[in-house]
Design a protein around this nucleic acid. Sequence first.
RNA 1: GCACCGGUAGCUCAAUUGGAUAGAGCUUCUGACUUCGGAUCAGAAGGUUGCAGGUUCAAGUCCUGCCCGGUGUACCA
Length: 585
Amino acid sequence: MFHSAIESRLRAAVSALVPTADPATIQVKPASEARFGDFQSNSLMLVAKAARMNPRQLASDVVARLDVSELCEPVEIAGPGFLNFRLTRQALEQWLSDAACGKPVLIPKAETPRTVVLDFSSPNVAKPMHVGHIRSTGIGEALQRMWRLLGHRVISDNHIGDWGTQFGKLLVGWKELLDRQALESDPIAEMERLYKTVNTQCDADPARLEMARQELVRLQAGDPENLAIWKEMIRLSQVQFDTLYGRMGTRFDHTLGESFYNAELGSVVEALLAAGIARLSDGAVAVFSDRTLSPKEDPFLVSRDGEWVDVPALIRKSDGGFNYMTTDLATVDYRIRTWAPDEILYVVDDRQSGHFRGLFHVFARWQPEAYRKTQLRHIGFGKILGEDGKPFKTRSGDTVRLADLLDEAEERALQVVTEKRPDLDPSERREIARIVGLGAVKWQDLLPNRQSDYVFSWDKMLALQGNTAPYVQYQYTRAAKVVRDSGAPTAAQPIALTEPAEIALAKHLMNLGFTLQAAAEECRPNYLCNYLHELAGLYSSFYEACPVLKAEEPARSTRLALCRLSAQVLRLGLETLGIEVTEKM
RNA sequence: GCACCGGUAGCUCAAUUGGAUAGAGCUUCUGACUUCGGAUCAGAAGGUUGCAGGUUCAAGUCCUGCCCGGUGUACCA
């Protein structure tokens, strides 16, 4: 990796001259524009500022000590103190040659691998998975794959909603209103119907609500009948989860739902009470502000009528039940004790950012030592909107089920494939449609900055040109086809880059590692999407401008190496995003 | 009321978190082609980054104040 090689030498040169400089601030990254070379660093301006030096002077002193001559042309100092690095042709050709014959120069393995617990997807038992789960599941899966690719240890845990007040209502419904036949044919729909029916009754009738509460209490007390029904509901739900995760290509190392922590909840509350962190309030147990933060930053204070009033986190309700703050605290505690992770990441809707701020804050007070060792991060994301700018719904106003959405994506893709490739047989077309349809959905979801809302559009995501999965997948098939047709083995071949399109493609291929690191570090799969779309475009331009199989040597070998590597990186990149490729489309 | 997240080309979105002349795609217009699979490529047009100040070598990004939109605001998760 050139950028890290240059970076470490730059660090050495700077610290020799300015011992006080923080090495972490000295960074090299791909140049923002080709005319500035291939890599740039703006760090000297920061160092100079901190040390009250003249940045241009510092730059020329550093450059005098910096030997990168076997990699780069002479280093250029630009503007107020930018360093511009331009790779030599030989260095680039050597890299391409190494990469093309399979040397590990594409992806930098982490020097100090970290253990990361990844909490994502988290659907509820007895409810259908819906569009909302695409984001958490897709982003979570992409993160899982990116971190693993970089050599980190990832523990993915699906924290399903299998415990809680909804089961009181579900139990009432199950015992009184269950339609066995309906349960047989579509268990999720039937359980949803039960819940909705009883929920409506409870709104109108307090006696009904009390009945639901009684059933919940019995369940929590271990009543055999209620436990058996509860387990059956989980089993039926797990079938749904497995089917959908199978289609989405998602895997979890663990599925430790809320119920897993049930036995710990009481002691969590006791511990917080004993430590003086929680106290009784209106019959509930609550954690109040400790006034160590300014009111504006304090998650447990809110301003009403000009006064800061307490909004505590509840960890035990006045009826003795626990809520999700309690469960989440027990979960953090368990994960840290069990896996000793460096980080725990929660891939959850941005609307819960307040909850996580509170959670992390309470945990910090409860276990300050563990909190210092483990970074807790909420990886939030925005909503999916319909073309009217409102939350994405079906025409009748219901939430869109994930299964229906995936079906429709495949169906729409099939129409396109049938139109484009009538020559293929139906089963082949269906398989291509599956790969393209699911890829399109995932790409659309991963492409925007995860924090912003995005508008769901069938037409745009399945469009054949533009920043879409089909476009990138198609460029893969073209590259892979050339490699197949060449019949050439993966042996070392002479490399001689001459054409601008070849050079631009080679340089972009080189930046995969940097992009992956940035995407993983900031939990932004969209960096990888944009990188791949750019790569697909550069490949296509190259393919247009430079004949491969018809070319004379050494251009033929060079271009073949570029095709091979482009195919490899496109495939690897897409698969890292959880998107499959196909050889024909 | 308060807090959080947004406001960038006609449209949908980026901008590697303070870097150099704000980039893509769509749309529109112009061009290439009996192709190593055209689901292609080349080019053009499109901007006072919501408004007004401030910080510094440098601001879409940070600070202050406004204006819009969304979300959240103790016994649901």
